[in-house]
Design a protein around this nucleic acid. Structure first.
Length: 231
DNA sequence: AGCCTTTGACCAGCG
DNA sequence: TCGCTGGTCAAAGGC
């Protein structure tokens, strides 16, 4: 498997500044089937894109009916330059006891290197998109791109502003939520800092109704209902 | 025994 | 219409 793959790969999302905790959280899985979001992912493909400058890996949520797919683009350094989620989970997070749902407890900002301003961008297509804006970083451009893409493919109600006030985003995390076909349940939550019990993780994202914590979910749900008024 | 990773090939969409 | 890129599937191997 990927037990002892390349250590360089294992840090993926963490970029360079990986807290020990995170390292510990990522025992030694090459890329982790359950990484950032705490879900189980199965790699189903890999391709070199952009002249082999970047490698794009394709992951699928291993859950039975979960259509969620994830694209992880990383440079030769093994650094994740972009993570793209497609769709939303329609199931709760798998229990950590199952196999390796370790990332479930990872701070959102850390798991993507947001806290450090690594430079990786994460976006969620087919439902919600979010990323960290890193002024001065190469991603700056990507930012525009991302946005364009998001709007492009999801020209629905842009609840962006109504969602999370861009002005109060803790670490410059801008996010937008869009409704898309095929993603009935999708909820994205950004715990700025004043938010609820997400205190443990200053930034958490929940795609689809998956958050395991019910408490916070209740609150979140309210928000979600406001914007993702799917039903 | 089961699940995941890896690699190659094939297909679809776009320029 | 041809070529290229991106995305997905399937088979084999490994842990």
């Amino acid at each position: 498997m990927s037990q002892h793959k390349e250590p360089i790969h294992s840090k993926n999302v963490g970029m360079h500044h990986i807290p020990e905790e995170q390292k510990g959280t990522y025992p030694s899985m090459g890329m982790g089937r359950t990484s950032e979001d705490g879900y189980n992912w199965r790699k189903y493909g890999q391709k070199s894109v952009k002249g082999s400058e970047h490698t794009r890996s394709y992951y699928k949520c291993t859950h039975l009916d979960c259509p969620v797919r994830k694209k992880v683009q990383q440079s030769h350094d093994g650094q994740i330059t972009e993570i793209i989620y497609k769709g939303g989970h329609n199931h709760p997070k798998p229990l950590p006891s199952r196999r390796s749902a370790l990332g479930s407890t990872l701070p959102f900002n850390e798991m993507f290197g947001l806290g450090e301003g690594g430079g990786s961008s994460v976006r969620v297509e087919g439902g919600s998109i979010w990323r960290n804006v890193q002024p001065g970083s190469k991603n700056d451009r990507a930012g525009s791109d991302w946005r364009a893409n998001g709007l492009e493919r999801t020209s629905s109600t842009s609840a962006v502003s109504a969602f999370s006030n861009p002005s109060s985003n803790t670490r410059g995390i801008s996010m937008g939520i869009f409704e898309s076909a095929g993603t009935p349940d999708l909820s994205i939550t950004v715990a700025s800092q004043d938010d609820d019990e997400d205190g443990a993780t200053q930034g958490s994202i929940s795609l689809g109704d998956d958050v395991d914590d019910e408490g916070s979910q209740s609150k979140k749900r309210k928000k979600e209902n406001c914007m993702t008024e799917k039903n």
